[in-house]
């Protein structure tokens, strides 16, 4: 009796698995086609874009025109962004196919979040590239270089706080603190930058009076 029930349960489970598999087969087939298509499109697109960039010589032209040397290849970055776009479209299709419309909302949120992260990365890269170029041109002394780097780190940290999973009040107080810190730091620097000769003289005079 017990054996029969067990067998019946197994039979039901297997039937369910089999029926789910049968239902999934067309979806798997379509997913395969989507993946194959994605790979093909990426391959073709990469080939075409690389050929075009070979003619355009984008990195060379960018460096020549802007006099800014990026820490990465701009043409490779564009190829990568194009590939990412195709992959995301393909991934969205697969999510829609297997998980249904309710999960696509999650996917959209993930894409928005990814976009925010990417924008922070891009902005950081741009800021550091500009920072490098300014330092190269102005031949800034090491102490000043350190100070500028310090301020930039504060700014990047503020941007990173925005995308963390911390609670909103904590985020806002952290950002506020950082902003006040950056403001004071810039103010002190400005005072020193414009009045340091006067301040030096004044300090010297105070020391002389003390002695």
């Amino acid at each position: 009796m017990m054996d029969e029930e067990l067998l019946e349960t197994f039979r039901k489970i297997l039937t369910q698995i089999a029926s789910e598999t049968v239902r999934l087969i067309p979806k798997i087939f379509i997913a395969l086609v989507v993946v194959l298509l994605t790979v093909a499109v990426i391959k073709i697109l990469n080939f075409a874009i690389r050929k075009i960039f070979k003619v355009v010589r984008l990195d060379e032209a960018f460096e020549k025109l802007s006099r800014i040397s990026l820490p990465f290849s701009l043409s490779k970055a564009i190829v990568w962004i194009a590939d990412l776009g195709i992959a995301l479209i393909s991934f969205y299709s697969l999510v829609n196919l297997f998980l249904g419309a309710q999960y696509t909302h999650l996917f959209a949120e993930a894409v928005y979040y990814g976009a925010r992260l990417l924008s922070i990365v891009a902005l950081t890269i741009v800021i550091f590239a500009l920072f490098n170029s300014v330092i190269e041109k102005m031949k800034v002394e090491t102490r000043l270089k350190g100070y500028m780097f310090f301020i930039l780190l504060f700014l990047v940290t503020a941007m990173l706080i925005d995308v963390t999973a911390l609670s909103d009040p904590l985020k806002s107080s952290l950002t506020m603190g950082l902003s006040i810190g950056v403001g004071i730091s810039v103010g002190v620097f400005a005072v020193w930058f414009f009045f340091h000769e006067y301040l030096d003289k004044w300090l010297k005079r105070v020391e002389q009076q003390k002695t």
């Binding site: 697109l45 075009i52 960039f53 010589r57 564009i78 776009g85 479209i89």
Partner: peptide, 26 residues
């Protein structure tokens, strides 16, 4: 001119890809 044209083509392709993605997720 030719280089600019080629670059515009690549940027147009990028715009097209991300426009499609935007249209899908929004």
């Amino acid at each position: 001119t030719f280089r600019l044209l080629a670059l515009s083509m690549v940027l147009a392709a990028l715009y097209l890809i991300y426009r499609v993605l935007w249209w899908l997720i929004s």
